[in-house]
Amino acid sequence: MKRVVHWLAAVLGLCITASAAAQIVVGQTSGFSGPVAAGVKEVSDGAKLYIDATNAKGGVNGQAIEIVAMDDKFDPKLAGENAKVLITEKNVVALFLSRGTPHTQAIVPLLDQYKVPLIAPSTGAMVLHKPVNPWVFNVRATYQREAERAVQHLSLIGMDHIGVIHVEDSFGADLLEGAKRGFAGVGKNAVFIEKYDRAKWDFAKIAPLVASSGVQAVLFIGSGNAVADGIEAIRKAGSRAQIVTFSNNASGGFVKSLKENARGVIVTQVFPYERSLSAPMVKEAHDLAVAKGLEGVSPAMLEGFAAAKVLVAALRRAGPAPTRAKIQQALESMNKVDIGGLEISYSAADHTGLDFVDLSIIGTDGKFRR
């Protein structure tokens, strides 16, 4: 029996503070357990900061927002099943913050079938950007742009001998395409390209290859625990190559999973620096987090916060009785909408939303530095 997780439920410690009963119901399926659970929690906590603040001020047009979340355990098949339950049984007006490329792909056929918008899938897969799906609204740059930018950066600092390790799924293939474009742009080729199984990863053969190849850097494409285990294996094999991974791993939970291997790992970012309080969105999220007793926000929390701002903006534009169709129309009417120092725009021909990409490095204190 599937486990339904309401953000109202104490079991996740995600209790919404609005006094009124939720009247706008939004659905989320994501890996609240499994290999990406730490990152999913941080993204969801970031979204909760803004939704709680909105509900505390009376909600949207007098209606509170409820996020009904289901745990798909980072299983694409279960993600699709959960989405159908949310759409057909929970009657959500929109889906929100799905996690993972194959997982979101499993949801997409339902969007057109039931005419339901999906806002801010937590993936930068190109397949969700081009061709434009009328029901998918991204709130982040593409993975291909991240990978291309990473190769360009490494080349700029004199690292030309670069290997690639990628998970064997649509997510891995997508980022690999961006990496190849990056290599072509600097006139280089990858020293090696190795793949691993998403569900049963094993780096026993790949790690010695990395060490013997003498590469200066490795682009490590994957999620959560798999990447942490792979980096550990590479270090045990004797390689000191610079490790670069991507924004899907930009969470404090991922840093903790790296343990002593965290320092020096480069992680691409798709939102402003989380400690730069001169950025209006960062300052707003930081202040709300501190008011709840937290030290501040992580990059993953900023992703969730930005996603929630877009969700709320769309609900406001959709009017006092938001429907799936009205929300979709409201999103496509958004042009240069300021969500805190970043402008988000959609049109019938472009559902990317934002194109911000930066790089960070994990410091000795376990925090991201830029």
Score class of each variant (00 low, 15 high):
residue 180 K to D: 09
residue 39 G to T: 08
residue 272 P to E: 13
residue 141 A to V: 06
residue 19 S to L: 15
residue 346 Y to H: 03
residue 12 L to Y: 12
residue 309 K to V: 01
residue 290 V to W: 12
residue 347 S to P: 05
residue 251 S to Q: 11
residue 210 V to Q: 02
residue 250 A to D: 12
residue 296 G to D: 09
residue 103 H to D: 07
residue 341 G to Q: 06
residue 202 D to L: 05
residue 123 T to H: 07
residue 67 I to F: 04
residue 284 E to K: 08
residue 346 Y to G: 05
residue 93 V to G: 01
residue 47 A to V: 06
residue 352 T to Q: 09
residue 294 L to K: 14
residue 142 T to H: 00
residue 166 H to P: 00
residue 276 S to D: 15
residue 143 Y to Q: 04
residue 287 D to M: 00
residue 245 T to H: 02
residue 340 G to L: 05
residue 55 N to D: 13
residue 313 A to P: 00
residue 235 R to W: 04
residue 51 I to C: 08
residue 267 V to A: 09
residue 286 H to E: 10
residue 337 V to G: 02
residue 94 A to M: 09
residue 369 R to A: 12
residue 229 D to W: 07
residue 335 N to D: 15
residue 58 G to D: 11
residue 168 E to Q: 15
residue 279 A to Y: 12
residue 55 N to A: 10
residue 43 V to G: 07
residue 277 L to W: 09
residue 172 G to F: 03
residue 280 P to R: 09
residue 303 E to N: 08
residue 20 A to Q: 15
residue 77 K to N: 09
residue 60 V to C: 03
residue 147 A to D: 12
residue 39 G to Q: 10
residue 76 P to T: 03
residue 290 V to C: 14
residue 358 D to R: 08
residue 198 R to M: 05
residue 97 L to F: 09
residue 107 I to S: 05
residue 224 G to T: 04
residue 140 R to G: 09
residue 199 A to S: 15
residue 321 A to S: 14
residue 230 G to Q: 07
residue 11 V to H: 06
residue 348 A to K: 10
residue 84 K to W: 05
residue 272 P to N: 11
residue 368 F to R: 03
residue 142 T to Y: 00
residue 187 G to R: 05
residue 315 L to Y: 04
residue 301 M to K: 04
residue 178 G to C: 03
residue 232 E to K: 15
residue 48 K to Y: 12
residue 272 P to M: 10
residue 114 Y to M: 05
residue 262 A to K: 07
residue 340 G to I: 06
residue 339 I to Y: 02
residue 9 A to N: 14
residue 90 K to H: 13
residue 231 I to N: 00
residue 298 S to P: 01
residue 296 G to A: 12
residue 317 R to S: 14
residue 282 V to C: 11
residue 11 V to G: 11
residue 211 A to F: 03
residue 296 G to F: 04
residue 84 K to L: 15
residue 166 H to V: 10
